Computed example of a mutant assay.
Amino acid sequence: MSSSRGGTGFLGRHVVWRLAARGHSIVFTGRNTHEAASVKALAGADVDFVKVDHGAKAARARLSACCRGADAIVHCAALAAPWGSKRSFERSNLSAVDEVLAACRERSVARLVHISSPSIYFDYTDRLQVHEDSPLPRPVNEYARTKRAAEELVLAARLPHSIILRPRAIFGPWDNALLPRLLRLIRLGRVPLLRGGRALIDLTYVDNVVDAVEASLALPANPAGVDPIFNISNGEPVEIGDLFARISTAFDLPLETAPRPYLVADLVARLLEACAPLVPGWEPPFTRYSLGTIAFSQTLDLSRATSLLDYRPRVSLDEGIRRTSLWWRETMGQHPT
């Protein structure tokens, strides 16, 4: 397991726990030794941690060393953010892939599962049932650009068994990005509904993504005649207004919504992005991309994953929200902050 946050991050820790529970010997990487200790505490025996800071001078050698004898690498490294410097995205999303591929070559690790993103499909239009072979638009930001470039590196490496997964909007226990952002919007009041709040959103409960990782590791060989790329989601598109309602009910929070004109919000976002470079260290409170993800529909065609990975989402959207709300209450207190 390799990541800029690796097994200490959201998806990474769930992969570590699942594979450890299956009896696999796991070495996971990351930068946060404190979080690594908490992951190990819940993983049980035969799990080791190696501190790796992708992009640093020693990262390539350290990663190669801990991959000695490995049968497979699951690579979750990413800076997944709507804003950041070009250098930061390239270090987390491209340098990390270079280091992982070098480790595969040096240690003869033939099997790689690389976690990518459907952000590479996004183009500020409604896109429904997007297939893996759909034409890719010009990347809308540095995150999408570097995730697309990372996929190209993996495909160019031509490993005997490499799989690329594009999971959409992962949520669940230990989520520190998607659901917290939605909860903050609800708590602030007057949740903005852009374009009528009718955009269809595909989400993916984290256990379903881990199922896809397991299926990828078990796939005998790369699919013949197709790129080994798979869309992953819950397959339950929901309107953004309905999603906010379901979350507010599960978390016992009052919900107030307010229709807002998308073009005005987009103009404000453009102005904020234009001003951000003038204030060192300041990030816009929202970006064109973050607004776009709740204003435009994006749903994924899962037929390839269903056919070749036998992927079937086991945890429904409502059950995933329920499980997440229970975990949040137990770990964060009665109400989200």
Score class of each variant (00 low, 15 high):
S3P: 02
G6Y: 06
G7D: 11
T8H: 03
F10H: 07
L11W: 01
V16I: 11
V16R: 01
L19P: 01
I26P: 03
T29M: 11
H34R: 15
A43Y: 01
D46Y: 00
D48C: 05
G55M: 07
K57I: 12
A58W: 10
A59F: 11
R62P: 00
R62G: 04
A65Y: 06
P82C: 05
G84L: 11
S88W: 11
R91C: 12
L94N: 02
S95P: 02
V100E: 05
A102S: 14
A102V: 07
R105I: 04
E106H: 09
R107N: 13
S108D: 14
V113H: 04
V113N: 03
V113M: 06
H114L: 08
S117H: 02
S119T: 10
L128S: 06
Q129P: 00
E132R: 03
D133G: 07
R138E: 13
P139Y: 13
E142S: 09
E142H: 14
Y143R: 07
A150H: 07
A150L: 08
E151Y: 11
L153T: 03
V154F: 05
A156L: 06
P167T: 13
F171P: 01
R181E: 02
R181C: 01
G189M: 04
R190G: 15
L193A: 11
R195A: 03
R195C: 07
R195P: 09
A199F: 03
D202N: 10
T204D: 03
T204M: 07
T204S: 12
Y205R: 04
Y205I: 07
D211K: 14
A212C: 02
L219Y: 09
A221Q: 15
P223K: 14
P223T: 14
A224G: 05
F230Y: 13
N231G: 02
I232N: 08
S233Y: 03
N234D: 13
E236D: 06
E236L: 04
V238W: 00
I240K: 04
D242H: 10
A245F: 00
A245P: 00
A245Q: 10
S248E: 02
F251N: 05
F251G: 02
D252Q: 12
T257H: 00
P259T: 05
P259S: 09
R260N: 00
Y262A: 01
A265N: 08
D266M: 04
A269T: 10
R270T: 14
A274T: 15
A274L: 13
C275A: 15
C275V: 15
P280D: 12
G281F: 09
W282V: 12
F286M: 06
F286K: 11
Y289C: 03
S290I: 09
L291W: 04
Q298E: 05
L300M: 12
L300N: 03
D301G: 04
L302D: 02
S303L: 14
A305T: 14
L309E: 08
R314D: 07
S316V: 09
S316H: 03
S325F: 00
W328I: 00
W328R: 08
T331V: 13
T337A: 08
